[in-house]
Design a protein around this nucleic acid. Structure first.
Lengths: 180, 180
DNA sequence: AGGAGATGGTTGGCGACGCAACGATTCTCC
DNA sequence: GGAGAATCGTTGCGTCGCCAACCATCTCCT
């Protein structure tokens, strides 16, 4: 890939249109999804995604560090995010059996219920604001491009396959919308 | 557009891959560009883009509100952002001639110099991390998709053409890399 | 064993941003 | 022309995130 892009030499005369629309789209989209989720279910987008990752994990529990990787957040960020969720009763903090240093966040029943309630809002947002705007044939191209961009940013030394971003070809949210 | 996307009815069985890679790509990319800019020029990405917008504006000055629109930031956010830049001597605050309520931010010589110094870093980042990862033929598709997403988010009632995101087909940064 | 270093998570301090409330000014319309 | 409404920007306060420092535990090497 990255076939014949002529202007590799100089950064002059680069068309910044695609770059700007990318930034723009993300800013608007993230803001909107966050607003909707907060308004309807008192959850931030981060909190929602945290609950979702927990729900998808085996045993509905995840180590703090792993959560940080998934959420692309710093360790302290995760600590505080989980603090909030614990305060709200959506998550419990348990110590890890195999490693006494470690802590795990595990979804409570209340957390799962909240997640299930919020899922329709979130999914509808993705459908209406993201997929609905993109021409059907373009979706695949966008995915390929985005995936390549993300992959290119994983520093060569690091292992960057820890994420799900690759698989998940099928419907996620299984744990979520399951029979209530 | 938005031709035959079958699963419009139910949000089930939606392929979240594209969505997740979009989020992922943005998170990594924005973080990286910000880091590079800070490390090399002590400027955040926001600050850089603020200076850039000012440099591109006629008279190198812009009203606060307009800046907020461009930067997709709240009014108070802009107030504080400009505060910082004023403290650093990169921007001056002047009162607006035609409307005594208004304030303008205008780029100082020092600000322009800083912007010019930082531009290569920023442009190289876009080139290396964004364009270099995307197949040449896909760039246009990505732009179209991103533009459509952003456009779809502009609430129907509001006028959302105030932005540059549409034009800028040619090289920007004219004011920046001009003869020193 | 046992100590050096790596690793996992939390805490303090700070920066950046949003919202709501507030003057200050301008617009609108009777 | 003047009162009320709309607009512009700033300020107080709360939230969220990062970095660096820290303590606890685990790993490995001798």
């Amino acid at each position: 890939m990255t076939t014949e892009r002529a202007p590799s030499a100089s950064t002059d005369e680069m068309d910044l249109g695609p770059w700007r629309s990318f930034l723009h789209a993300h800013a608007r989209l993230a803001r909107r999804m966050d607003e909707d989720l907060r308004a309807a279910h008192a959850l931030s987008l981060q909190e929602y995604e945290t609950l979702l990752h927990l729900a998808e994990a085996p045993g509905r529990r995840l180590r703090m560090g792993r959560l940080a990787d998934f959420l692309l957040l710093s360790k302290s960020g995760v600590t505080r995010l989980i603090d909030r969720l614990v305060d709200d009763g959506l998550v419990e903090r348990t110590s890890c059996a195999s490693d006494a240093r470690g802590a795990e966040a595990s979804l409570t029943g209340s957390g799962l219920a909240r997640l299930r309630a919020a899922a329709p809002t979130h999914l509808a947002g993705i459908r209406d604001h993201f997929y609905a705007a993109i021409d059907g044939d373009d979706v695949q191209v966008v995915e390929r491009a985005m995936h390549a961009v993300a992959a290119g940013l994983c520093e060569p030394g690091g292992i960057c396959d820890n994420h799900e971003a690759a698989e998940h070809t099928g419907p996620a949210h299984d744990q979520v919308r399951a029979r209530a």
